[in-house]
Amino acid sequence: MQTASTNIGERLCNKSIRDISWLLNIPRSAVSGIMTKWKQLGTTATQLPSGTPRHMTERGQRMLKRTVRRSRQLSAESIAKDIQTSCDLQMSPTTVCRELHGMGFHG
């Protein structure tokens, strides 16, 4: 990906495709392909991120951590209800458990 960003940067400095190819030691067809993709899509990424988007934002994660540290005896269901009322986030107890495991809380 470093090559693609360097390629775009050089092109923005009004360098020709031939010069960029020579500087980066990559074929002209590759430089041309990268530039075409960047002009059409605005990015050089080849794939979209896989999976579904995360349910919790960083703010929600901080609130979840604060809630658990305040009272460690709460169940995942009660934590989910508490976050639902305070943050307006629809979240299942399974998601709460998964997020807590990711933060290092177990049991």
Rank of each mutant, 00 (worst) to 15 (best):
T52H: 15
S50V: 01
L48R: 13
S78C: 12
Q73C: 08
L48I: 04
R54P: 00
R70H: 14
V68L: 03
T67L: 11
T67S: 11
S50H: 09
R59Q: 09
Q61I: 09
Q47E: 04
S78M: 13
Q61T: 07
L48P: 05
T57L: 05
T67C: 10
P53C: 04
S75M: 06
L64G: 02
Q73L: 09
R66E: 11
V68T: 02
A76H: 13
A76M: 11
K65F: 12
R72A: 12
M63Y: 12
T57G: 04
R62D: 08
T46E: 05
S78H: 14
M56D: 07
H55L: 07
S75Q: 06
R72G: 05
S71P: 07
I79P: 01
A80Q: 05
R54L: 06
T46F: 05
A80Y: 10
T52C: 12
Q47G: 01
E77N: 11
K65M: 12
G51C: 03
S78V: 12
H55R: 12
K65E: 14
R66F: 08
Q61Y: 14
A76I: 02
I79C: 02
K65C: 10
R70M: 09
T67F: 10
T57F: 10
M63N: 10
P53G: 03
A80K: 04
T57H: 08
S78N: 14
Q61R: 15
P49Y: 04
E58P: 01
R62F: 07
M63I: 07
A80M: 04
S50D: 01
T46Y: 04
I79Y: 11
L64D: 00
K65Y: 14
R59P: 00
I79R: 02
V68Q: 03
P53Y: 09
Q47A: 05
R54T: 01
T57I: 03
P49W: 02
T57K: 10
Q73I: 06
M63H: 13
G51H: 11
T57D: 06
R72S: 14
T67M: 09
S50L: 02
S75D: 07
P53T: 04
Q47Y: 05
R70K: 15
L74N: 05
R62I: 00
V68C: 03
P49S: 03
A80I: 01
R72F: 13
S78D: 15
T67P: 00
T46R: 07
M56Y: 14
S71I: 12
M56N: 10
E77G: 09
R54S: 07
